[in-house]
Each structure stands twice: as C-alpha cells, then as structure tokens.
Nucleic acid binder design. Structure first.
Length: 424
RNA sequence: GGAAGGUUGCCAGAGCGGACGAAUGGGGCGGCCUCGAAAGCCGUUGUGGCCUCCGGGUCACCAUGGGUUCGAAUCCCAUACCUUCCGCCA
C-alpha cells in the first residue's frame, strides 16, 4: 500500500501521480479525511489512558497506606474515564479499519518515468530482436495446439477430462521439454539467486501482502476448509518470506529464485487467447525476485529484465520488450516491463515475463524493513521480480519457432544438455 | 486425529495483580586500562503510533484475539504456532 504519511504530507503529489493511472480518486480523498479524524481520536484516547494510569497508581498507593475510602473514590473516578476511553478506542479502531480497507485497494504510485497512456495499446515497444514477420515458413505457421497434440506431446482433451478446460497435460517429449526449461531457467540464475522451494499454499495475509487480496480474490484458487490460497506465482511466498523482519542494509540486495506451480482461475478470461498453452489454470514457472534498498532498485530492475530477456534470446525466440504505461500498470506496480516472445504458429506475441518494481508497496504490506548502516531506525524495503522462465508460453513459442519442414522440432543449442537430444 | 508441555527483549532466562518496557547472564556498541589484545571495570543497547513551543511529552507492544479489574507480562476464555509421545502416512 502507499505511504499514508505521504498522503498526509503531500496530498497533491499523490493525487497527481495516481491520476496518471486514470482511476477514480474518491477513495484517496476518503482516506485523507478519515486519517485526520483517526489522529484526533487517538490523541484524545491516549490522554485518557494517561489519566487512568495515574489514577490507578494513586489507588495503589492509597491502599498501601490504608486509606481505603479515598482509594475507592479515586477508583470510581478512574472507572468513569475508562468508559470514555473505551468509546474513543472503539471509534478510533473502526476508523482505522476503514482507512486500512481503503488503503489496501488504492494502487501503487507509478514511477515518474512510466510512460503516459490509458491502456495496453499505449505501451511503447522498447526493443525488438530476432523478429521478421515474413521470415517464417509454412511449417512454422502451424499452431502448437494442432501439431503438438497430433504428436502426442500435448493432451488437452484428457487434461480437460481430469480438471476441466484450460488445464493442460504434457506428455512424453513434451513433458521432458517442460522439465528441461525449468532446469535451464534455474541454472542460468543460480550464479546470484538463492534457489528456494516455498510452500505453494499460503495464508490470506500472504496474499494481501503482494496485492492479490482483497481486490482480486476471484482470480485465485481458495481451499475453504483450511483457508489457504493456491499461489498464482512464487512472487507471493517469496515476497513474504522475510515479512515482519528487519534486515541489515549490508545484506542487500537479497536475490531469490523459485520454481513452483502457479495457479490462476483466470476469471473472465474465458474465450480469447485460451487455445493450447496460451492461458492455463496451472503452470510451472521459475521466478526471480529481490529485496533491495530504494537506491539499489533501478539497477536490480534492469538486471532482472536483462536476465528474463537473455533466457528467451538464447532459445532463439523472437522477442520484444514492452514498457507498461501508467494506465496499464498492475495495481502493485511502480514500474514494469514485459518481455514477450513471438509464437509464429499462434501468430501472436505472448507475455512471458513481467519485470516489475513495486517500490515499497508490497514491502509495506508485508512488513519488510531494513536498518540502514550506521543509522538509527528502519526503512521500508523495495521489492522487484520477474519471471525467469514461464514454461507453457515459452514451450509453445519454442516448438512453433523451431518446427522443421518435416514436422520435427529442433532443440535449441542451449537446451540440448538438458534434454540430451537434438530434435523432438 | 489424540495426549502432555511450552511461546517474555538480539540470545538464554526470571517475573505469576500495583513503583515492569520488564531482574540476571550472554552478545553487540562506546569508553577506561594496554605498545596492541585478552581479562577486568564503567556506560549503553527493541519496535511503532500520536502530539510538539523540537527541549521533549504521551500511548501501544511480554504468541494472537477477546474478557475480568481502578490497575494485567501476571487472572479467565478462545485461537495459532512450537516441542515430545501415540495414531496415520509419501
């Protein structure tokens, strides 16, 4: 969530920044008004508590001295204040809860250099590589949901039998390819990122920290019986890994990676772009993530983008980098770049990584802090992450791109050590 | 799933209704001593909210949430987590 103190001290700037997203600002206005009310309530409540404390100590002293009548009188006095305190506290708590509810729904402030724009169509393309729309042969223009199903690498029908539509099942060489991609994604980041295998079912508060809750509950799977949520990305457990902790500045940035399944209900996404592996409810992904001091964040952000891009470049895939404009920025994002690969069979660009800087938005929710070297006190961390390798879409673009006229798929050089073969 | 015990500051650990934000020891930091170090001695050492005439004042936090009381780390209730044993299990 955004910094309430910033709302208090520089309301105009916060308002102007959020306005770039093109959202309704009435919640922000309410927050500012309620916060003022909250502060006056707790100031009064605290002075009431102070008086109760002093009176109670008097009672103790009077009783020790055997002056019981006087003690009873003071106790009665204190009890009256107690009632007033109770009322003030209840009201203050109610207002605070209201402020928090609103604050959790207000999106992050876009970074100053985020491009202007209202939606996806305004996102500038920063970089295109290895892409020639006319350079693909007929054999490459076949969508994977046709030839990969025929070859027995992808079995959508039986997956649907087991779990419904938008679940995929990979088989034989198709499954091996997915596993190879995971290993490839992990190995290329193992130089700096600690490998972690986190739980993939998490408490509600963990989903709140990263921003999935309360606003986007319909997008996630929930296990009612145990009140646990299936993670939509490893970003969720990794961001909360150090929640409530105070880290040393000297240890920053802290880099982590995780291979996990990811679960997404994709509510409202039915219909478009859901053929084959384009959009599935469950998929594997290698995520890289970092905790950084604010000054370190831009460099770490660039590093994550560089790694995500290089991973697809080294697989010989046409790719591009898209700069997400203010109107298209995700709720928790401060600045974001998407890496997209071109799938010639599907005939479209597929988002395979969203490299994002969250500033202190998630860290404040999660309670991630650090102690600056040589300073007293703490500061809120910054979090950043991106997919190092999202399996299904990379899988799809890869088999379509490297499909040969004879129907076999040439395994890119970089992946051969993992698959132990040159063709599928 | 059942039973028992536990959860206090950076760590260990005392406190079991009033002067407790919390004894004591360890650790960290600063100082004295020393050529330097060890030992010893002295001091210091949590987080956050609000107000501020920027000197400070004040409130909250002893797993979490309720309750009792003039007053709760201390009493009561519920929950979570941890440990051990039993059961079940990849």
């Amino acid at each position: 969530m955004i910094d309430l103190r910033l709302v208090r001290n520089d309301y105009g700037a916060v308002r102007a920044s959020l306005a770039r997203r093109g959202i309704d600002l009435s919640e922000l206005e309410q927050v500012a008004a309620l916060d003022e009310r909250h502060r006056s309530l707790i100031t009064e409540r605290d002075s009431m508590r102070h008086e109760i404390k002093e009176l109670s100590q008097q009672v103790g002293r009077l009783k020790r001295d055997g002056r019981h009548d006087e003690a009873d009188a003071v106790a009665a006095e204190s009890r009256m204040r107690g009632e007033r305190e109770k009322a003030l506290a209840a009201e203050a708590d109610a207002v605070a809860a209201e402020v928090r509810d609103l604050l959790l729904r207000i999106p992050n402030l876009p970074a100053a250099d985020t491009p202007d724009g209202v939606d996806e169509s305004d996102n500038p393309v920063l970089w295109v590589e290895n892409f020639d729309p006319d350079g693909y042969g007929e054999h490459q223009r076949v969508p994977h949901w046709e030839f990969a199903v025929e070859a027995g690498w992808l079995d959508m029908e039986r997956a649907a039998k087991l779990s419904g539509s938008m679940f995929a099942m990979l088989r034989g060489p198709g499954a091996s390819l997915a596993r190879a991609l995971v290993q490839y994604g992990l190995d290329r980041n193992a130089d700096r990122y600690e490998e972690i295998r986190p739980p993939t079912l998490v408490h509600s508060e963990v989903m709140v920290s990263t921003g999935q809750l309360p606003k986007f509950a319909d997008d996630a799977y929930w296990l009612e019986r145990d009140d646990l949520w299936a993670i939509p990305t490893a970003e969720v457990p990794l961001t909360s890994l150090a929640s409530g902790e105070i880290l040393d500045e000297a240890d920053l940035p802290i880099r982590m990676m995780a291979h996990t399944p990811c679960y997404r209900r994709e509510a409202g996404a039915a219909g478009r772009d859901t053929r084959g592996l384009l959009r599935v409810h469950e998929f594997d992904k290698v995520e890289i993530l970092a905790y950084a001091a604010p000054e370190q964040a831009p460099a770490v952000h660039a590093e994550i983008l560089e790694r995500a891009t290089a991973a697809v470049a080294d697989l010989g895939l046409a790719h591009r980098i898209v700069d997400i404009c203010a109107g298209d920025l995700g709720q928790a994002h401060h600045r974001s770049w998407d890496v997209e690969v071109y799938a010639p069979g599907a005939g479209q660009w597929l988002e395979v990584s969203s490299c994002s800087w969250y500033s202190d938005y998630q860290a404040r929710r999660a309670g991630l802090r650090y102690r600056p070297t040589g300073e007293k006190g703490t500061r809120v961390l910054h979090t950043l992450n991106g997919s190092a390798l999202a399996v299904p879409r990379v899988w799809a673009a890869l088999v379509e791109t490297h499909r040969r006229p004879d129907g076999a798929v040439a395994v890119p050089e970089a992946l051969r050590p993992y698959l132990g073969r040159d063709v599928l």
